[in-house]
C-alpha cells in the first residue's frame, strides 16, 4: 500500500515538475526538431552532390568524394561536434553552437546519404544508362531523368535510416551546449534528481520523431513504387 502511494506521489511530483518546466522542454523539443531537419536537409543535398561526384567520369571528383566519405562516416559524431565547436574558433571562425551542431550533423549524415544514393544508383541496370546515352542524354540528363528516379525507390528505406541516425545524433549536440531536449532534460535532472522521468521524456521525443520519419518514408516508398500512388501509377486503361 505504501509502495503504491509512493508511486502515485512520485508521478504527481513528476507531472508538476514537467508542467513547471514546460516552456523549457518545448524549447528543447524545438531545438531538436530544428537540428534534425536542418542537418538532415543539408545532408541530403551534400550527400547527393557527393554521390554524383562518386559516379562521375572525372577521377579526381570520384577520389575526393570517396576520401570525404571515409573520413566523415568514420569519425564519431561527438568528436566531430567538439572539433567543430572548439576547433573552428581557433582558426578564427565563430559559429553559434546551434549552427556548429547543424554543421556536424550535416557533415556526418552527408557521408551516409552519399553511400545510400550511390548504392541506389548501382541498383539501376547499366543498360538503362546506356539507353539514355544512346538517345543523346549527357551525364546529368541520364542521372536526372533515367537513373535517379529509379534509384530513388531503392534509396527510401536506407535514407529513413540516416534520418533516424540524425535524430538520435542530434542528442550529442548537448555536449556542445545546444539547449536541445537531451540538454534540457539533463539540466532538469541535475536540478531535480528525477533521472527516470527526464530521460523517459527525452526518449519519447526521439521515438516519436523516428517513428514519424519512418512512417513518412513508408508513404513515400509506396508512392514511388511501380503502380503506386505517385506519378509512376499506370494511367487509366486506354481503349
Amino acid at each position: 500500500m505504501e509502495t503504491l502511494h509512493g508511486i502515485i506521489q512520485y508521478l504527481q511530483e513528476s507531472i508538476a515538475l514537467l508542467g513547471d518546466n514546460l516552456p523549457l522542454l518545448l524549447q528543447g523539443i524545438g531545438y531538436t526538431v530544428a537540428l534534425t531537419l536542418l542537418g538532415y536537409g543539408f545532408a541530403l543535398i551534400l550527400g547527393t552532390v557527393l554521390a554524383v561526384c562518386r559516379v562521375s567520369p572525372i577521377p579526381p571528383l570520384r577520389w575526393a568524394s570517396a576520401v570525404y566519405v571515409e573520413i566523415f562516416r568514420n569519425i564519431p559524431l561527438l568528436s566531430l561536434l567538439i572539433l567543430i565547436a572548439f576547433g573552428l574558433p581557433d582558426v578564427g571562425l565563430l559559429l553559434p553552437y546551434f549552427w556548429c551542431g547543424v554543421l556536424g550533423l550535416t557533415l556526418s549524415s552527408g557521408a551516409f546519404v552519399c553511400e545510400n544514393v550511390r548504392s541506389g544508383i548501382n541498383t539501376v541496370p547499366v543498360g538503362h544508362a546506356e539507353a539514355a546515352r544512346s538517345i543523346g542524354l549527357g551525364f546529368f540528363g541520364t542521372l536526372r531523368f533515367v537513373v535517379l528516379p529509379q534509384a530513388f525507390r531503392a534509396m527510401v528505406q536506407p535514407l529513413v535510416n540516416v534520418f533516424i541516425g540524425t535524430v538520435i545524433g542530434s542528442a550529442l549536440c548537448s555536449a556542445i551546449a545546444v539547449s536541445e531536449i537531451t540538454w534540457v532534460t539533463q539540466t532538469l535532472n541535475i536540478q531535480s534528481g528525477r533521472a527516470v522521468v527526464m530521460f523517459l521524456v527525452a526518449g519519447a521525443v526521439y521515438l516519436g520523431m523516428s517513428l514519424g520519419g519512418a512512417a513518412l518514408g513508408g508513404v513515400i516508398e509506396r508512392a514511388v513504387a511501380p503502380g503506386g500512388t505517385g506519378r509512376c501509377a499506370p494511367a487509366p486503361r486506354s481503349t
Partner: peptide, 20 residues
C-alpha cells in the same frame, strides 16, 4: 559525342526501356 550519339539510334538485346 552526345550530339553525334543522338544521330545514331541504338536498339539493345535487353530492350532497356526506362521502367519508371
Amino acid at each position: 559525342l552526345t550530339r553525334l550519339r543522338a544521330d545514331v539510334g541504338m536498339v539493345f538485346q535487353s530492350f532497356n526501356l526506362f521502367p519508371h
